[in-house]
Nucleic acid binder design. Structure first.
Length: 249
DNA sequence: AATCATCGCAACCGCGAGCCC
DNA sequence: AGGGCTCGCGGTTGCGATGAT
């Protein structure tokens, strides 16, 4: 634990005052204050956090803590082989554009993916592109090995997937009905959302998924690789929804 | 058991884009 | 037009955990 940087006084005040920003690991109390701030004011205006909550953290630090650790829709746990494959594919396509890659992995942050890449792939070859090819081969072998087990577990996975999807959809609907702070950008009905997120989905497929069976047609995954980067610049609109749902479409 | 190396990840830093006045 | 502010991104660092010797 240490104390760092001195910041000149805040703009707009006649008297310049020195403020010492705290650095280093966040405490539970700091997390609580930040979560409360976002609950009351939503994401953004991070430089207001210190003034409104008393947190001795600068805006950048608050944003980073929220985006990388406190966001309620973050997925915990290890990167799955499927996610690993996506990372490799997208890195081969976009290089170190971590935020772009992260948008295709719901619940994963650019920082997490960046760290994962560095620790798992970067050092395994002289350059990352070689690493990408080697890792892809490794994953293909791994997937082959696990194929039999996956078949055995298929029923159980299908059940879990259905439950997860139902939970996701209920969150969206809760937000729609209750203005839940977790998804402040959502203002669509479930049907509208699916129409937007899954434009290639036929009406029959859409109804099928909406009515409780969320099996993913293989061809719909193709859309994941054709995401238009231009429409993914901000997580405060439909894009956020798209990114959450895209893997299921 | 002690020491050293490596890993994994949270957090920081510098930079640039976009916006507003 | 340009200066200031906010935000997001990618690179880097620091440090605890874990493994190897």
């Amino acid at each position: 634990m240490y104390w760092g940087g001195v910041m000149a006084g805040q703009i707009g005040q006649s008297i310049m005052e020195e403020d010492v920003w705290r650095k280093g690991p966040w405490t539970a109390e700091e997390d609580r204050l930040l979560i409360e701030y976002v609950r009351l004011h939503g994401e953004g205006r991070w430089n207001s956090v210190a003034r409104l909550t008393g947190l001795k953290r600068n805006g950048k630090s608050c944003r980073l803590r929220w985006v990388n650790y406190l966001r309620p829709d973050l997925k915990r746990g290890q990167i799955t082989p499927q996610e690993e494959n996506i990372i490799l594919e997208l890195h081969a396509r976009w290089g170190n554009r971590w935020s772009t890659i992260a948008r295709s992995l719901p619940g994963r942050t650019d920082n997490e993916i960046k760290n994962y890449w560095r620790t798992h792939f970067k050092k395994k070859a002289k350059n990352p592109w070689d690493a990408s090819e080697k890792a892809k081969n490794r994953i293909m072998r791994k997937q082959l090995f696990h194929q039999q087990q996956q078949l055995l577990n298929q029923q159980q996975q299908q059940l879990q997937f259905n439950l997860d999807m139902k939970g996701l959809m209920s969150k969206f609907e809760d937000n729609n009905n209750n203005n839940n702070y977790r998804f402040p950008y959502i203002s669509q009905t479930r049907q509208e959302m699916f129409n937007h997120m899954c434009p290639n989905t036929t009406e029959e497929q859409g109804n099928f998924m909406l009515n409780g069976n969320y099996s993913v047609p293989d061809n719909l995954w193709d859309g994941l690789w054709n995401l238009d980067d231009d429409v993914h610049g901000n997580f405060s609109n439909k894009t956020g929804l798209y990114n959450l749902v895209a893997p299921y479409c």
